[in-house]
């Protein structure tokens, strides 16, 4: 089989797996909803109880669609960061975007002592987290205008991130027990808090981020061999870098604002995808990483529901716990295969 048709088949398989996972994820949860009921809902027939209809419409479908969007956004921004920094440990949060969002959320939850729940408090956290990510992005763009060396930017990003985390720690130390609990829950990540209305806002925000990401594919491909090579083949390195930073800030910042920080996906999915499709060319890697990111976040969400139980595990813990062994396996197995 030629390389291209093998790749097309791989994408098709991934696509089918995603559809299967979406259906499975929608029907799983504390209240069991059968596939038949789900199809009834989709087809508009009335063979579904009122209670199940509400659960599907207001909880399950928004949660699964959030998983699709967040999985795509985080994995794509991770791929962008790893390519631009030429560093396998880079991820969407490496530049401090997650810390910026966390600080925003911390200011609302811990700083104001907001304990109220409901639409205003929820939107307050989302808006503050998004503002936090946006401020970090803005500062980062100012830095990139002055500093050309990409490694210096990476180090500054990491330092920036650590500095913000330190401020959050101080705020946590002085926060009330209830506010602290509420912040810790936010920081554990969740796909279930996104409502239909916030899902619309999230989608509208993520689409330009994804479009920008698609537009950087050619530039990033050239930058695989280094920025000087990219310049020598006519790529505007500074513009590509700026577009990547804006795109990743929109993608990672928005997901963090709505779902809290979700670890592992951004760092690990590009590695898993490289291993699965055996390619580094961004034109192949980009769509495959996007699909892999969706699939893996859906699997994480399914596991976090703990099938057969009424408990829900923190998403961040699940993504890490299922992800770490996978990455270790990929790294060791990949090395062995390469040798």
């Amino acid at each position: 089989m030629s390389g291209k048709s093998r790749y097309s088949l791989q994408l098709a398989v991934l696509f089918v797996i995603i559809i299967f996972l979406i259906i499975l994820d929608i029907s799983s949860g504390t209240v069991k909803i059968s596939f038949a009921e789900f199809f009834s809902y989709v087809s508009g027939s009335e063979d579904i109880s009122r209670q199940h209809l509400v659960i599907l419409r207001d909880f399950r479908i928004p949660r699964v669609l959030t998983a699709v969007l967040a999985g795509a956004a985080l994995s794509v921004s991770g791929l962008q960061m790893q390519t631009i920094f030429r560093n396998p440990l880079a991820g969407p949060y490496v530049l401090g975007i997650s810390s910026g969002a966390s600080l925003g959320a911390a200011i609302v939850v811990l700083g104001t002592g907001t304990l109220a729940t409901g639409i205003i408090a929820d939107w307050g956290i989302v808006a503050a987290a998004w503002m936090g990510a946006a401020v970090v992005m803005f500062l980062l763009l100012l830095v990139t205008l002055r500093i050309r060396n990409i490694m210096t930017i990476l180090i500054l990003g990491i330092m920036f991130s650590s500095g913000l985390s330190a401020i959050i720690s101080i705020m946590q130390y002085f926060g009330s027990a209830a506010a602290l609990k509420s912040f810790v829950i936010w920081s554990m990540g969740s796909l279930g808090d996104v409502t239909n209305s916030s899902l619309i806002v999230m989608t509208i925000t993520l689409i330009p981020g994804l479009i920008l990401a698609v537009l950087t594919v050619k530039g990033l491909n050239g930058m695989m061999l280094g920025e000087e090579y990219a310049s020598s083949v006519g790529i505007n390195v500074r513009r590509t870098r700026t577009l990547v930073f804006i795109s990743t800030s929109i993608l990672a910042g928005t997901v963090t604002a709505f779902c809290g920080p979700i670890g592992f996906i951004g760092i690990a999915v590009p590695h898993i995808t490289r291993f699965l499709i055996g390619k580094s060319d961004m034109r192949y890697l980009f769509p495959a990483t996007l699909l892999c990111g969706i699939a893996i976040l859906l699997i994480s969400d399914l596991i976090s529901q703990v099938p057969g139980s009424e408990r829900i595990l923190p998403l961040n813990a699940v993504t890490s716990l299922i992800g770490i062994p996978v990455v270790i396996w990929v790294v060791i197995k990949g090395r062995k295969l390469a040798n």
Partner: peptide, 17 residues
């Protein structure tokens, strides 16, 4: 510093940018 998984054809194709 060649990238893992990048084939000769893919690397040479970068010259067509």
């Amino acid at each position: 510093s060649p990238i893992e998984n990048l084939t000769v054809y893919e690397l040479v194709s970068l010259g067509r940018h």
